[in-house]
């Protein structure tokens, strides 16, 4: 176990720049998620999205929309994403990817 970088009270990294793949595995383990290549595909996508747009997809619906735009209907749907990232997929996925909390996810 490494020491995790600074996080807020909901478990989101304070600084997206302090993220590493090992950090992702540790945060995922807290939710009993074992990361496979399907998870990594979405995580890499989110990291790239953040680099380009300096924000997380602002809501769960827009997260699904952005994934759909990038990977098509098979992956850009709530059921697929909820299976990978239980709870509110956008929140869970952003937390693991080291991004800030999506602004409009209640």
């Amino acid at each position: 176990m490494t020491t995790l970088p600074l996080r807020n009270n909901e478990g989101f990294l304070e600084d997206a720049g302090s993220w590493t793949p090992e950090v992702a595995q540790e945060i995922a383990a807290e939710d009993s998620i074992k990361l496979n290549e399907n998870h990594w595909e979405i995580i890499d996508f989110l990291r790239e999205f953040y680099k380009q747009h300096e924000m997380s997809p602002p809501s769960n619906r827009l997260f699904v929309k952005a994934v759909k735009e990038a990977f098509g209907d098979d992956k850009g749907n709530s059921i697929y994403l909820m299976q990978l990232f239980p709870g509110t997929p956008a929140k869970t996925a952003c937390r693991i990817a080291g991004l800030p909390r999506p602004t409009n996810c209640l």
Binding site: F49, Q52, H53, E54, M55, P57, L62, K65, A66, E69
Partner: peptide, 11 residues
């Protein structure tokens, strides 16, 4: 500008 560039992605 980077935030705004996400607008087309969201439709």
């Amino acid at each position: 500008e980077k935030n705004l560039a996400a607008a087309p992605v969201f439709g």
